[in-house]
Structure formats: C-alpha cells, structure tokens
Write a protein that binds this DNA or RNA. Sequence first.
DNA 1: CATGAATGAGCTTTCATTCAT
DNA 2: AATGAATGAAAGCTCATTCAT
Lengths: 214, 214, 214, 214
Amino acid sequence: MAATSTARWRRRKDERPGEILTAALACFAERGFAATRLDDVAARAGVTKGTLYLYFASKEELFKSVVRQEIVASIAQAEEMVAHSEESAAVLLERLLANWPGLIAASRIGAIPKLVLGEAGNFPELARFYLDEVVRRGTALIAGILRRGVERGEFRPALDIERAVFCVIAPVLFTMLWRHSLEPYADRPLDARALCATHLDLLLHGLSAPEPRE
Amino acid sequence: MAATSTARWRRRKDERPGEILTAALACFAERGFAATRLDDVAARAGVTKGTLYLYFASKEELFKSVVRQEIVASIAQAEEMVAHSEESAAVLLERLLANWPGLIAASRIGAIPKLVLGEAGNFPELARFYLDEVVRRGTALIAGILRRGVERGEFRPALDIERAVFCVIAPVLFTMLWRHSLEPYADRPLDARALCATHLDLLLHGLSAPEPRE
Amino acid sequence: MAATSTARWRRRKDERPGEILTAALACFAERGFAATRLDDVAARAGVTKGTLYLYFASKEELFKSVVRQEIVASIAQAEEMVAHSEESAAVLLERLLANWPGLIAASRIGAIPKLVLGEAGNFPELARFYLDEVVRRGTALIAGILRRGVERGEFRPALDIERAVFCVIAPVLFTMLWRHSLEPYADRPLDARALCATHLDLLLHGLSAPEPRE
Amino acid sequence: MAATSTARWRRRKDERPGEILTAALACFAERGFAATRLDDVAARAGVTKGTLYLYFASKEELFKSVVRQEIVASIAQAEEMVAHSEESAAVLLERLLANWPGLIAASRIGAIPKLVLGEAGNFPELARFYLDEVVRRGTALIAGILRRGVERGEFRPALDIERAVFCVIAPVLFTMLWRHSLEPYADRPLDARALCATHLDLLLHGLSAPEPRE
DNA sequence: CATGAATGAGCTTTCATTCAT
DNA sequence: AATGAATGAAAGCTCATTCAT
C-alpha cells in the first residue's frame, strides 16, 4: 500500500529471469512439474502469466532452465576443491561430506534431485543432461578420491570402487530428498550435519567393533 | 447358463481391482501422478475409463490405493523375519540387505518410494501414512538390529544408532529410485546385488585398511 | 423446455460429426477461420467445446474437414453431367450455368471459395488440395466443353480456350463470393439466376450488335 | 542543430504512417486480419509495436485505414478517364480493361478485394464503406459505358445492363483474388494481360462463330 | 517521438468425471 | 458390470494494448 511505486508494474528486465527461476524452482519442488500452474509461478515471482513467456518459451523450457541453472555452478565447485588438494583421501571425503549440508542449505539446489527423479520419465532430454553433467561428473569425483585412497594404502585394496561410490553418495542424496518430501510431515527435522558425520564415521570405520584382544 | 455367466462376471469383478492397480502403478511410476491420464491406465488395464470409477472413487483414491496395496505386504514380511531370528546382528543385516534386490525385482514395490517422494507435497495424507507405516516401522526395524548388535558387542558401543539407520537404508533406497528414474537412460543397468554386497561390506568393515603393524 | 429429454446430453455419435461440420461451416463463413471461436461452433452445433475434440483433432483439422466435405460431392456431380452428354457445347454451357444457382442455394458449398481464398496463405496444404481437386478439375471441365465447341464449329476457331475458361467461371465465382460477403449489406440481393442468364447470353453472343446491313 | 534534428524527426513523422500502412497491407493480404499480429506489421515496417499506436488507435483502425487509403486514389482515376472521353463504348471498355493489369501491378490495391471479402462479416462498417465507395461507383462507371454503347447502337439494345456490369467486372476481380490467394501455389502465374484481352474479345464478340453462309 | 516490458483477457486444448445406454 | 459419448473446469499460451522510460 505504501509501496515504492503506484505503477501497475516496473521494468526490471535484468532481474526478472532470476526471480522467475527462483519462484519456479520453489513451485516445482513443492508440487512437481505437472501439478505446478504457471499462475502460481507468476504470482510467486510477482508478475503475470504473460510475463513468463517474455523470458521462457514454454513451461517445459522454464523447467529445464530451472534445473540447468541450479546445476551449472554447483558441480564445478566440488570438482575444484578436490582437484587442488593433496590431502589424504579420508580428509578429502570428510571435507566433501562436511561441506554438503551447508551447500544444500545455502543454495536452492537441494530440490533438484527430487525434480529430476520424478520427471525423468517425462523429460528424457533432461534426464540425459543430468546423467552427463551431474551423475557422471559426481561419481567420477568420488571414484577419484576412493582410488587415490586405495593407491595410497589408506583404503582397503580390494575395494569395489564403482559400487562404493554409490554408497558414499546415497546418504547425501537421501538427505536432500528427505528435506523436500517427507520432512515437513515428520516429528522433527533431520540433522544433516550429524547424519553426515555418522555417515563418514561408518564409511571410514564400519559398524564392527575392533577385535577386542588384538 | 445363468450360473456360468454369473461366475464369469464374478471372476472379472474379483480380478479387476488388482489389474487396475497394477496398470496404475506402472503408469504412475513412469510419468508421475499428474502426468498420468486415466485413459492410459484404463488402456493398460484393458478396460475403459468409466470402469475405473466402478472400483475407485477418483484418481486420487486410485493413487492412494496403489501405494497402500504395495506397502501393506512388504514391510510386515521383513518385520517377521527379524522378530523370529536369534542370529547375530551382522547376519541379520546381511540377510535383510541380500534379500532386497530380489524383493524389489519380484514385487512392483520398487516404484513406490519415487512416487511418494514426488507427490508428498500434493498428498499430505499419503505422506503421513507412508511416514507411519513404512518409515517409522522400517527405521525401527533397522534400529532394533543395530541396537542388538551394540548390546551384544558386535558393533561399536558409541554408534549413533538413529543416524546410522539412514546410512543403512540410503543405498537400498537409492537403488530403487535409480531403477525407476535415470537407469533407463544410463549406459548400463545398476547391479543391485553387487551394490548391496559392497554396501554390507562397507557397513561392517568400513573403507579403511586395517592398521598393518598392530 | 418441453424437449424430448431432460438429460444433459444424448449420445448421438453418428449425427454429431455432420452437425459439427455444418455449424463450423456457418461460423467460418461468417467470420473466417481465425475469428471463429470454438465456443461459437460448439454452441451452434448444440454441444460443448470438449465434444468437438472427440471428432476433430484441432481447429485446423476441423477447418480442413469442412472444406473437404463440401467439395467432395460437388465437383464430381458436374463432371458426371458433362461426360454423359452428347449435346452441343452451347447447350452444355447453358445447362452448367443454369444449374449453378440452384446448386449453390441447395448445398452449403457457396461459402467455400471465400474461405479458401481468405485462408490460402495460412493453409498451404489446403490451398494445394483445392487447386488439385477443384480448380484443376473445374477448369478442365469447362475447357473440355469449349474445345468441343470449337471442334464442332460452334465456337470461333481462334478461341483462347485456356483464358476463356476463367471468363466463363469468374461470374459464377463472383456470385458465390458476393453472397457470403457484401450481399448482406447491399440494398437488395443479387439475382443469381438472372445474372447467369445474362452471362450465358454475353458469352454466346457478346455485347456487340449484329452488323445491320449484312 | 535543433533545426536539423527537428527536421529529421518531422520527416520520420510524416513518412511513418505510410510505411506502416504499406507493411500492414502486406501482412493483412498474406494472412488476413485476425491472423496478422501487430508484431509482424511492426517488424515489417521497421518499428516497434508501441509505435503503431502513435499513429493508429487500434488494430481495427489500422485495418480500415489500409483499405481506405488504397481505395481513395484508384476509383477516382478511372472515373476521370471515362468522364472526359468521347470515344466509342467499345474503346472505352478496352482501355479500362487493358489498364487494369498495370494498375494492379503498380499499386498494392490488388489485395484489397480479398481483404474486404474475407472480413466483411467482421467489419460491417467497412463493408458498407466499400459498397458505397467502390462497388456503387465502380458499377455505375461500367453501367455508364454500357448504356452509352446501347444508346449509340454499338451494343445490343436488349442488353441487361445491370447484370452485364458484373460480367464485365468479374474476370478482373477474379484476377486480383487469384493473385493473392492460390497463385503462389499454382504451377505458373496467371497472365493478367492475356486474360483481359480474351475477356474483352469475348465481351465484344461472344463465343459463337459467325453464321457462315449469311 | 519511440521503445519494449508488462499486462490480462481470451483463446485452444486437455482430461477427470458423469451418466445414458 | 461395463461402456464411451459428453461434459466443463482448468490449464497453457497468445497477443492487442498500455505505459514507464
């Protein structure tokens, strides 16, 4: 009411796309692609439906843009960290896993896996893009660390690296999925940091108690 | 002739719901709830759209029935196995994890987590149902095993059981999600059995090599 | 109000397509393709918008069906008449032209030329269809008569048949176009029969008075 | 410098309307009124959509202006020619018809009949304007020539002038309509000059061969 | 004078649901 | 019990029009 302007709208060409993508991500994350109405996205972005079409050719394109924009920055960042480090594999893993909770909270990337999972069947092109740009690069990253650990004698020589990668990733992914699906209905939120700590601990040492009389 | 005819009708009547649920699960798993058309479900079930409404009040009810039907049998089975066993925790875990791949392949339950994850935002009631009937019972089951392992000295006493549960479950869940989302686009399928074996191995022993000169 | 049924609708699968085409032709003829709303077509056909899509895949398909259905029967009929006749060319022409006004009034074909003319730019496929099925066959029909007239010595030997064809057709076409465009706004309707008679008279004898002292 | 700038502005201001009308005519002729987007008109005129509204109040007004501008000059010109001539009716007709092809090619008036025909149903006002300013004056012009011909004994005394007028006009109109509708899809273009020559020939002499032994 | 970002009404199209058969 | 023609409420998308710049 006491707003900065009484105009029906303002020209904000540069800010619009980002605002729309943010609004769209939120809507898609909440309801999925098909159940999201462009009216909702528009309302959340503070524009009208027609405006969406100034920046995105269709609902599908908007969806793909949402996924792409969130992905682009994030994966490269993790690769960077690993590439420039000469630390032990265990420390690398620890830093990677310890970073994750903060990263998820800070960026809005946490909802992407849920979206891609749910819509892979409807967006083959997107599925392939994600497979190439995220899954392949992400698993290669982890596999590199594990391999380094084996080579250096840190990790067990017989390690099945290819599968172990998924075991490393799975709890992290789980956290992201949980947060954007069932967590709102659960008694209490998941403590991502604690879970990552436990995960790291299990990864490095396993469940088993050390043989007592050694 | 009335008898024959009646019998045949009855047989159809008894089988229809199951056939419809099976068709619906397949459709929902492929495309998600919103993107699935009842025409498709009906076609896949070999009936017409109108017939669906003889057995299910609405698309939503059909969806919930799909989820419920798949869940009911599965979780109880696992609970049964654990309850009647006096074996070590490690063996129990092993049997649980080793069973999973077969269980997923045999039943059509594998698509349920993806569906629930994706539609939790649109079906709060379903989310709560799943949280109660699957998540709570499933985590309790694993937690019980872990607790037994700690009590018996098999597992490390300081184990953070509550979080470890998720670490145990995550790779299994991951396998199910993968299968119904990105796997069709990947170069080659995931070997669920091998992944479970590696997971178990890591769980019990961890990544780290035993200290050599101890 | 005292209708035959209080039902919201009746199943009339066989009659529907024809009714819809008739309604659509009327609407398209009045307003053109783009300016016609499917709501109007549906209302005029006594159905709802959704019903249109049970029978026609899209507005474009509906439009093409309208044109095709009207054309199919009409051109063959004229060809038939000419083929089986051994009368003089002049008599043939006379019968063809004399028939036209009745034909136009009876069928709803009169609006088609206006539609095709107006939408040729937007429907290349339709334009080509019309060119092949109507223009080519129609001109061939007239050309055949003219040629016969020349061969038999009825018509002048130097006749430029190819162009004369258009001179024969043009007034007929004009009548159809006029009726569905400006006539509603004119002081009085065009007397198609009288115009055809004059046209025939001019065609056969020309404007010029016979040389008086021959 | 203010002078130069003002002058340049003014020059644009003076030229803009004409440029826009030319662009609009081309677009309307190609696609019809409803299917023409103002974006297209603007692009073809080398301005932006908003600029159109500086010169024309709405799409409808633009359309009417297009029609009016093309018509105004053309009809008066023909009237002029006839009024100041004392030649025979046959010669007048010949000059009128022979002029037409060039006139159509030179101006962009050729597309107007198609537009008016197609949109008469949507623009009653325009239809009446066209009826008054073009049809009435045009038919009066031809009727005058025919009447003169009859009075002078050139043409047959029993001539049904009122209808003959349409027979004179129809092939000319046909040429214009053809050019802007089906011609682009036909094997080869229509030779307007040859067609007019044949038309004149038929008009004056008719199809029939002179009685040989008279 | 000119722009073009933004609007919003209105269109085509889809599809869950109903109900006469 | 089963059908499938018909419905009608959305939804995606377009585009004439407006107006801050």
